[in-house]
């Protein structure tokens, strides 16, 4: 029988605290790299200017006083918990929320959660949104995704018809990202979830935005769809900040799961050009 490993929730709280601060002020390396490549390729002078401003923004933010974006996002956490882990010294989700609350206070990050109807701001950026997956082993992997409202609002789940198939999905995603235009702060990363069910399509789509930018799916069928969507979206002319150019998206990432014979769920989640996410394994 496998040994059970104790993990104190205080360690989870500290990890969340550090990841949240890091995500708010420091862009992921792979995102910056993709933007630099796009800059080299870009032909529009306005687009180049926009990308230069984005690079300057990254530099100013890295000095630690001004976060990358004023919208420091909802705290979305993907938690992969090894089944041999036993959390001790408190309730896991409380610890996660404490880590988020402290980071958003100490880091001068904007508190963006509110009552959906009265719109009253809760002032603490809580609750965090936690997606938990039980996996083999005795480790805990935490991915922290600071998800802004502008790109999130340009996301959707659509229950497609099975007959829509591959080409229907490609067209739906391309049309959707192009009509979103300047709203989600392009150049964007497009996350797509195909199959599963209604809510799995959405979770897969968001999880897909966290893949290393531009790394193709290991499934050649999906990799081919990713390439086609990438090309068509970048052919739209929308460009950085929607001000025209060749760089509307930096990457298209698709995840897929089996679905019901009567359904073809499609999730589309867009990440903006800072795509703030950081991870750690405990």
């Amino acid at each position: 029988m496998a040994q059970v490993r104790d993990v104190g929730v205080k360690d989870v709280e500290e990890a969340i605290y550090k990841l949240a601060l890091d995500a708010a002020y420091h862009i992921p390396e792979d995102v910056l790299e993709a933007e630099k490549k796009a800059y080299e390729r870009e032909k529009s002078p306005v687009a180049k200017k926009v990308l230069e401003t984005i690079f300057k923004n990254i530099e100013v933010s890295a000095q630690g006083e001004f976060p990358l974006c004023q919208d420091t996002g909802l705290a979305v956490i993907f938690l992969e918990v090894g089944q041999d882990v036993h959390f001790t010294d408190g309730y896991l989700v409380d610890a996660i929320n404490r880590g988020v609350e402290r980071a958003y206070k100490d880091g001068y990050l904007r508190k963006s959660t509110c009552h959906p109807l009265t719109r009253e701001n809760y002032g603490n950026n809580l609750p965090a949104i936690v997606h938990t997956f039980v996996v083999p082993g005795d480790k805990v992997k935490i991915i922290f995704d600071a998800k802004g409202g502008g790109s999130e609002s340009m996301s959707k789940v659509q229950m497609m018809k099975p007959a829509d198939g591959r080409d229907g999905i490609v067209k739906t995603v391309v049309d959707w990202v192009i009509q979103a235009g300047p709203n989600p702060c392009p150049p964007v990363i497009v996350g797509v979830g195909i199959g599963g069910d209604f809510e799995r399509a959405a979770v897969m789509a968001k999880h897909a935005t966290l893949r290393k930018v531009g790394e193709p799916s290991p499934d050649p069928v999906l990799a081919d769809m990713e390439r086609e969507i990438y090309e068509k979206v970048n052919n739209s002319g929308v460009g950085p900040a929607g001000l025209g150019g060749l760089t509307t998206c930096l990457g298209v990432h698709i995840e897929m799961e089996p679905c019901h014979i009567a359904t073809l769920p499609l999730g589309i989640n867009i990440a903006c050009h800072v795509n703030r996410h950081k991870e750690i394994v405990l």
Partner: peptide, 8 residues
């Protein structure tokens, strides 16, 4: 139009 994300 201002550049979204050029917040810092």
């Amino acid at each position: 139009a201002s550049i979204g994300g050029a917040a810092a």
